[in-house]
Amino acid sequence: MKLKYLLFALFLSLTLHSCVVLSTKKYKAMLSQRDSLFTRATNLETEISQLQADTAHLHGEIASLKSNLADQQDSYARLKGNYDNLNNNLTSTNSKVNQLSSDLQKREKRLKEVEDILRKRDEATNALKEKLQKALLGFQQNGLTVDIRNGKVYVSLTDKLLFPSGSIVIDERGKAALKQLAAVLNKEPDINMAVEGHTDDKKVINLGQIKDNWDLSVLRATSVTRYLTEFERIDPKRLTATGKGQYQPIDPADNNDARTKNRRIEIVLTPKLDELYNLIKN
């Protein structure tokens, strides 16, 4: 509206300034010019209002965009922080995975070495059993058995094959069986031996210095061990003698057949496993 007033004042000033009596034609031309100026002024004011509105709108959009930009920058900073954390975690996880993979490879290698040694032990144990069965074939009808338990060869001899009743002195038939056994074992220097004496659960009666089944089992085991070392020349370092008394029966039944089975000498043969022990210690 100010623009229109200014134009009107200008037009009036020019009219008064001329101090000339205008003709009707000139007067109408001036009126037309005035109307044109008013129209242009109105249009300019409208355009200015529109420009002002657009400017305000743009300022609002700019403010909104700046706010959004600030939010996006905050989000980016958080995401970057999360990414850095994830990247650090990934690096740490990769390091752990590599370490675990290396440890697993070492364990698998170690396991294979142990399995190879155990396989060799089983092969040696089976071969030893076959040799002993062939060498002692003639005694198997007299209460001698050869079997494998827990990776060890057990040569079980009933007491009647080795000793007279109630005695700790080996008879000739028992010596013959032990001689055949020693012939095989002297050719197998990597086999250790444990001689175990076993009795039944009947109390010892009238055996002089032998007080009980513990004594009887230990002394019989010692007699077998002494014979093998002194007469058959087996290295004493390979042998141990133990007495089990009546506490590890083959047959727990309460009858004479079971007691006969339980009265025995067991020679437990174990391959040396130095390689395996070294692996376990390392």
Results as ranks from 00 to 15, higher is better:
55 T>D: 05
96 K>P: 00
28 K>T: 14
211 K>E: 02
114 V>Y: 05
249 P>G: 06
62 I>E: 09
113 E>I: 07
279 L>Q: 02
35 D>E: 15
274 D>K: 15
55 T>S: 08
211 K>P: 01
167 S>V: 04
1 M>E: 10
254 D>R: 11
133 Q>E: 06
81 G>P: 04
194 A>Y: 08
65 L>G: 06
40 R>I: 13
60 G>I: 02
23 S>E: 13
26 K>E: 15
212 D>G: 06
77 A>W: 03
137 L>C: 07
201 D>M: 05
102 S>E: 12
120 K>Y: 02
190 D>M: 10
236 P>W: 03
12 L>E: 01
211 K>H: 02
113 E>M: 14
100 L>T: 06
192 N>Y: 12
183 A>L: 09
159 D>W: 02
32 S>M: 09
104 L>N: 14
272 K>M: 03
172 E>I: 02
247 Y>R: 11
192 N>M: 15
278 N>H: 05
224 V>E: 01
189 P>W: 03
262 N>A: 08
260 T>S: 07
28 K>P: 02
106 K>I: 06
65 L>F: 09
56 A>E: 15
217 S>D: 02
267 I>E: 00
126 N>I: 12
276 L>H: 15
167 S>R: 07
181 L>A: 01
10 L>C: 09
235 D>R: 01
80 K>G: 06
184 V>M: 03
233 R>P: 04
66 K>I: 08
107 R>Y: 13
135 A>K: 12
4 K>M: 11
158 T>I: 14
249 P>S: 05
107 R>S: 13
238 R>E: 02
22 L>R: 15
127 A>R: 06
79 L>G: 10
69 L>T: 01
103 D>N: 13
163 F>Y: 04
14 L>P: 07
230 E>H: 04
239 L>D: 00
35 D>R: 14
222 T>G: 11
17 H>Q: 10
45 E>I: 11
241 A>Q: 03
32 S>Q: 09
278 N>Q: 15
174 G>F: 11
206 N>S: 11
147 D>L: 05
179 K>V: 11
141 Q>N: 14
228 L>M: 03
134 K>P: 07
167 S>Y: 06
168 I>F: 13
59 H>T: 15
281 K>M: 15
74 D>C: 05
40 R>P: 10
241 A>G: 03
30 M>W: 04
188 E>Y: 03
61 E>C: 02
